[in-house]
Design a protein around this nucleic acid. Structure first.
Lengths: 334, 334
DNA sequence: GCGCAGAGCTGAATCGGTTCAAAGACGGCC
DNA sequence: GGCCGTCTTTGAACCGATTCAGCTCTGCGC
């Protein structure tokens, strides 16, 4: 009796059968009012809490959803996670958070665990797109990709149009009169970096008088940005581009810091545009212009697609592509 | 057969009993080598994945751990979450993430869900310290508080010594020659804010020639900091304190931005010290001096205490208090 | 040849809800 | 009174892994 009263004890106390208690829990409208009240009372008196594993075992699936991200410490994923959590909670689902640290082995082991838990579905920003993901799907667990488009024949996916984002940034800078633009970002093997660059390059190629150069970085963090900024500043005032477009805000913050430190003024000497519009972009000493991605929206939509896949009879996979939006602040306006 | 082969099918295929398969899964050393190999082969051929709810139902507890935070989007909690996740993963546990948004009702509903899931334990930065938490514990689910000390008779807790943090900041500023210090933070009802202020006040009161004033804010975010900075700047150069100590880095970033915008120089005109040492503190245009909290460490330790409570026979509740560390950067050194 | 130890394996009981066919209660109607 | 339909409630089967008492088999010692 101590510790964990079960449904049988509740039934005993309320003077009904276990089936009735279960009905009160799951389809209260089937149970007559006085009986229902008696059951509720018994539950309260015993402090009964439904054992979810037993329910799960019978029903076949759990009330959880797996979220697999590269790194929770990255504000981008944090905001996506918020969106996922909100939507999941609205549907009574809990979210299991997994970090992969860009390690395919960690990704695999997390997916194995989620499979054992029979989660309702998995939202993932995948590293290794095939392998286990296909296996999961084969086991009837829907998988939705986010921040990465997949094959619409087999899966739903949600992403942001990074090529468009690159176009927006470049168009803005050109319209502001800049004729030499430097793209800072890397590694170029990352799809996001690649596409942001392509977008900018497409716009620039339509203007004969505009020049686009590239400075590749090894990572997308503040330290890499600072290193890039130092290199720029070291080249001397004459070698400076008139504007810098960074593949994400962390890089942009690093560049901003290094340039300011070298005595250069932003945007007077060099304009800067970042990408992501993380909260700290607006909070920088020179508020950063940035290409905003609807991060929470991304998470919410991914979760909704997943739920649709589990509930709809005839599910058709969808690809949702969001449009980014340019937020102009001080760093790019003279 | 389609979808989800179970342990019985594996047994059939390997030509052994279900008990043997279970032994291979859980205590492989009990099973003779050739049999074991046959079972492994059958598992691989069928693509068998253990059903965790069935295991859980039998064993009585799950392999998950609940983490309840005020807001994942806050970098402080994000880093704590990283620490928790790392430790949990090392022990084969998954982490269920819950946001409360400082709403006691959301906190309660999350705790109910975690109770139904029979999680191994809960790590929480509590709003409503009594109520459900006691109930959970009564049900045999250990609860560890973090960023908040609890009653050592009933629970483990992990926190950082915020009074000491306040002392460190104030001592540093006084030694740097500052004689008028402004504390910016609020609401003062928050324990953390209160204690950081107390620490600073204690140090100041030991110096007759130093003056400490307070500017309360309604929140701990960048916008509130900006508002505070604007008020300071509006008061004119003569009314300025020589140094500002902010209750967290978000406020400090806001103050920094507003002051810079008003044409004041940091640290020449006003020195600034923040609190938390979030990654963006180092990345600010004027790198921010800040009181560092061992956030990941906090998470790891909390998770370890929880695991200790579930495994030790004679568990004695512990209170772990970390010491913060002052990180001096440009914003407070002339 | 017999007894015994120990390794290896078996298979039924068990965990605690959910579900559903069927039984029971009750009222209305011919 | 008998029959029918509706509303409630019952209780046993079931989900799939774990566990453990007990069975079989082998080898060894006397």
């Amino acid at each position: 009796m101590a510790g964990a009263p079960n449904i049988r004890e509740v039934a005993l106390r309320a003077g009904v059968s276990v089936g009735t208690v279960s009905n009160v829990l799951n389809r209260p409208e089937l149970v007559a009012e006085p009986t229902r009240e008696r059951v509720y009372a018994a539950i309260a008196e015993l402090g009964f809490v439904r054992n979810d594993s037993a329910r799960q075992l019978r029903v076949g699936r759990s009330r959880t959803l797996g979220l697999v991200v590269l790194d929770v410490a990255n504000p981008f994923f944090t905001d996506v996670a918020r969106g996922v959590e909100d939507t999941a909670n609205q549907h009574g689902l809990a979210v299991i958070l997994c970090n992969t640290d860009e390690d395919p082995r960690k990704e695999a082991s997390h997916l194995d665990l989620l499979a054992e838990m029979r989660v309702q579905g998995v939202l993932i920003n995948p590293i290794d797109i095939d392998g286990r993901i296909t296996a999961l799907r084969g086991r009837g667990i829907p998988v939705v990709l986010f921040d990465r488009l997949g094959d619409p024949a087999v899966e739903c996916s949600v992403a942001v149009d990074d090529v468009l984002g690159g176009r927006l940034a470049a168009t803005h800078l050109i319209e502001a009169g800049h004729r030499s633009i430097l793209f800072v970002g890397g590694p170029l093997t990352l799809r996001q970096v690649q596409e942001r660059y392509e977008g900018a390059a497409a716009v620039v190629s339509a203007h004969d008088d505009v020049e686009l150069t590239v400075l590749t970085t090894t990572a997308l963090n503040v330290a890499a940005g600072r290193a890039a900024g130092d290199r720029l500043a070291a080249g001397g005032r004459d070698a400076l581009p008139s504007a810098v477009f960074c593949a994400n805000d962390l890089l942009a913050l690093g560049v901003l810091q290094a340039l300011t430190h070298a005595g250069l003024r932003v945007p007077a000497d060099v304009a800067i545009v970042g990408y992501d519009d993380i909260d700290f972009a607006a909070a920088a000493a020179v508020p950063l212009s940035s290409v905003r991605q609807p991060r929470q929206q991304l998470g919410r939509t991914a979760a909704e697609l997943l739920l649709a896949e589990t509930t709809e009879d005839e599910h058709e996979h969808r690809q949702v592509v969001f449009e980014p939006e340019l937020i102009v602040r001080d760093s790019s306006v003279r």
